[in-house]
């Protein structure tokens, strides 16, 4: 078995994963693309373990560790996605560009769960508290 074949396949899978991470809007699809990239790495690890003939089985052991870590990462990632969905009613990554929570004003004047609440049209309320964040300059807020 030439090492080139699995290595090139892993490179292609990694590139497909890069495209998915960059082009997808839904957060769950982004997580799927991350899994594709991790699988490309796993294929590389297995191929080079077979090539080197490692007596310690470092490559395949690391593959198992990567699989377990990917499962843990996906669990925490999906929990975060669900928490974000509960608060913002959306999982589109390009709509989640507010650093503060919608109802995080110190005087409590914001609506906590409005639809699309990540876009606060008036960025003037959040100044004066101890945990105040400066309003970002934002052109053309929808």
């Amino acid at each position: 078995m030439h090492v080139v074949y699995p290595a090139v396949l892993a490179a292609l899978l990694f590139s497909i994963g890069v495209y998915g991470v960059l082009a997808r809007r839904n957060t769950i699809l982004v997580l799927m693309s991350v899994e594709l990239m991790l699988n490309a790495v796993n294929l590389n690890l297995v191929a080079f373990d077979v090539w080197l003939g490692d007596a310690l089985h470092g490559g395949q052991g690391l593959t198992l560790f990567v699989i377990v870590i990917a499962a843990a990462e996906l669990g925490v990632g999906l929990a975060i996605v669900l928490a974000v969905f509960r608060n913002r009613r959306t999982v589109a990554v390009d709509r989640l560009h507010a650093l503060a929570e919608p109802g995080d004003d110190p005087d409590g004047s914001g609506d906590p769960d409005g639809p699309g609440g990540s876009d606060d049209p008036d960025g003037t309320q959040d100044s004066g508290g101890p945990g105040a964040r400066p309003a970002r300059p934002r052109g053309g807020a929808v």
Binding site: S15, V18, Y19, L22, A23, R24, R25, A92, V93, D94
Partner: peptide, 13 residues
Amino acid sequence: LNSGNKVMAAIVA
């Protein structure tokens, strides 16, 4: 399902 930077993502990939 796709965001606006699809072309740039394809170029990078």
